[in-house]
Design a protein around this nucleic acid. Structure first.
Lengths: 147, 147
DNA sequence: TACGCTATTGTTAATCATTCTCAATAACAG
DNA sequence: CTGTTATTGAGAATGATTAACAATAGCGTA
């Protein structure tokens, strides 16, 4: 995936807000942009480290906040542990189906639900900004593992 | 609200699992059952305290786990702070619409969404156990407060 | 290109909800 | 009433995330 355009966007946004285009921020965005997984800050920390890029965990947390704020990533609070972040740069909006046995995450798209959500917002006079929609259950594989 | 029947259920379940029907557990369930709010463990802790009932925070956390497990309450992870719990004893299933400005929580019921969720579960071969569906936005009042 | 201002970083400590440990206590079966 | 064992309370521990702050590095300007 060509991350150049996103880096350009990022640069422009940072400049507009009088923030700096640092090497750490660039590396973190590249790491996110080139992944299709649901990454934790620690994942990013160690991935970068393996590539010889040093960025502290604190910086990664700080940068993720920035990227969430500017819509480059979406923060997922799945389960209890660490937060996960997903690349929001391309691809259509989706929600998540999570297996509570094996932890596998499936992304689903259901436009009808999106429409209904909008209607609910309208009904109660809300200007919707985001939503969390996670279905939890046991996946086919785990159901079959009757041990 | 008459909490007796729920206490009886609770007692039966505890006995079945070789657990004990303690005064703390009873008081905590009564507190939850007689409230229609979304309570944090701390809320329960202080409410009981005001009534002269002592139960430690640790016990409340432990009891909430038990009540979640046996379907007396639903645990809501709204926002970042403490978990909230709602009485699941009576009333129909609903999800939540949350104002990110004032923190107000509105409960909504949308059966069409429930149906679509089931279909998604079926489509991916999941046996669904629970879901989290939270819409975030700005409520009418907060939109009008243009200061 | 060098300079100076100030945002950013890394390190470390702090926070804060929640869980764990463990000795003392209380439920409950017999 | 007694013995067994689940439960409790107090406080320590955990673990993710954030804050504080001195050192550093972007970046606009001369």
């Amino acid at each position: 995936m060509n991350t150049e355009p996103y880096l350009e966007d990022f640069k422009r946004i940072l400049k507009k807000e009088n923030l700096r285009y640092t090497s750490q921020r660039v590396e973190i965005l590249k790491e996110i942009a080139s992944s299709n997984h649901h990454l934790e800050c620690e994942d990013i920390y160690f991935s970068l480290r393996e590539k010889g890029v040093d960025a502290s965990l604190a910086t990664i947390y700080r940068t993720m906040d920035l990227l969430v704020k500017h819509q480059f990533v979406r923060k997922l609070n799945i389960g209890e542990g660490r937060a996960r972040y997903e690349n929001k740069i391309d691809g259509e909006h989706h929600d998540h189906l999570i297996c509570t046995e094996c932890g596998n995450i499936i992304e689903f798209v259901e436009n009808d639900i999106e429409v209904l959500q909008e209607e609910i917002g309208k009904k109660y006079g809300f200007k919707l900004t985001k939503h969390i929609h996670q279905l939890y259950g046991i996946c086919e594989d785990c159901q079959n593992e009757t041990d």
